[in-house]
Simulated assay, not measured.
Amino acid sequence: MILTFVRWGRSLALRIPADFARQIGVDEGDYVQANLTVDGGICIRKVKWDRRAFARELETMREVMPMTQAVTEELRRGARY
């Protein structure tokens, strides 16, 4: 089957036939992971969103990016004269 990319805002979108979606068990709003393959292809797999893994990822980000003064507060101070 040959599919065509279409413009969707500033991105490109690829429509997946309903039969394909049914066979891999995806529906609107489901999460998928896309990877580029060595030969230049795209591999798309359905993934289940893991709340615990997401929380661990956020915790790691907090360690890397320490809390500083809020940007909005800095902007507000700069706007005052």
Results as ranks from 00 to 15, higher is better:
20 F>N: 03
21 A>P: 07
74 E>S: 05
67 M>E: 04
48 K>N: 13
15 R>V: 14
49 W>Q: 14
37 T>E: 09
44 I>A: 03
28 E>W: 12
39 D>V: 11
1 M>Q: 02
33 Q>W: 08
67 M>T: 07
38 V>H: 05
15 R>W: 00
56 R>V: 02
42 I>C: 00
21 A>F: 07
60 T>Y: 07
73 E>V: 15
52 R>G: 09
53 A>C: 11
8 W>D: 14
26 V>G: 15
19 D>Y: 09
77 R>G: 11
21 A>V: 07
59 E>Y: 03
47 V>Q: 04
36 L>K: 01
76 R>T: 09
45 R>M: 02
33 Q>M: 07
26 V>E: 11
76 R>D: 08
64 V>S: 07
63 E>H: 05
40 G>L: 07
30 D>Y: 13
68 T>A: 07
74 E>R: 09
11 S>L: 09
37 T>W: 05
16 I>P: 09
23 Q>T: 01
70 A>M: 04
19 D>H: 08
14 L>S: 02
61 M>E: 13
79 A>W: 01
2 I>C: 05
36 L>Y: 08
81 Y>K: 00
21 A>E: 12
52 R>I: 04
4 T>E: 14
26 V>Y: 08
19 D>P: 14
80 R>G: 02
39 D>S: 06
57 E>G: 10
31 Y>V: 12
19 D>S: 15
32 V>P: 09
62 R>C: 00
1 M>F: 00
2 I>N: 06
18 A>K: 05
80 R>A: 02
66 P>W: 03
32 V>K: 04
48 K>D: 13
21 A>Y: 07
30 D>N: 15
75 L>N: 04
58 L>M: 03
75 L>T: 05
8 W>F: 14
55 A>Y: 04
